[in-house]
Design a protein around this nucleic acid. Structure first.
Lengths: 126, 126
DNA sequence: CTTTATGCAAAGCGTTTGCATACTT
DNA sequence: AAGTATGCAAACGCTTTGCATAAAG
């Protein structure tokens, strides 16, 4: 647990939500001006391996990270790429839903809602 | 509708399933040896805009394409990146499931199953 | 003849990696 | 002293773009 890793963890907790590695980097740089992007990526991966941080590989967009909590789902704005949480009435169990699994052993699923965030919604109405 | 675009469409129909732009390129090159990857990307985008082809931005993996059919879902092998179809018992309507939508206007969702394909399953048992 | 698409190569973006240096224990 | 993590910069893989040439309408 180096100085850098600690600062990265703190940054993750302070940042609004679902920051990219670059956003983490920019915040950490204020305290450790000589830190490099590579170190941020390496430590984020290590924290993911430790189970402390979750990696969100959003389809077609820049990868995002967050500190791990209970399972929850995300909305991604199709216009600006913002990601926020969505709460769901019941945690879905899609294992039950699959009919033909094509020889695969299904281990999980990625559920990501898409839409327009409030700001882009406003902008598109003007 | 150029020679190239036609060849790309044909390639898409002949290829097994969910090819990447590069796989399309490799097949088309057999008929039009001077075609370039850039042209393949440009035409795939055009075909997507026409609604003829679907673009599958799989999280963290190489983008894939397929000729558009009825709605269906995909499994992605977490080991080799293969993508195949999965059929689902009922088409889920997640609009109903969302509780707190955080100001977003939800337009859709991306549901992608993850797991191991039969080959990687075999390989991991050895 | 005007417009649009092409091939090529270079640039772009986000991420990863090799390597010498600097910590850590 | 041995091992790990760092900063830096270069490399990477996939995708996009600028531009001069060629094809299409």
């Amino acid at each position: 647990m180096t100085r850098q890793r600690q600062a990265i963890l703190e940054a993750l907790k302070e940042l609004p939500s679902h920051p990219t590695a670059e956003e983490v980097y920019n915040l950490v740089k204020k305290r450790l001006p000589r830190i490099s992007l590579g170190t941020v990526y390496r430590n984020l991966d290590a924290l993911v391996a430790d189970g402390v941080v979750r990696k969100i590989d959003t389809a077609g967009a820049q990868r995002k990270f967050d500190t791990k909590q209970e399972p929850h789902y995300h909305v991604r704005c199709i216009r600006c790429g913002a990601v926020d949480d969505v709460s769901v009435k019941q945690t879905p169990s899609f294992e039950d839903m699959v009919l033909n699994r094509n020889g695969y052993e299904i281990r999980g699923f990625l559920l990501e809602f898409t839409g327009l965030c409030s700001e882009c919604l406003k902008a598109s109405e003007e």
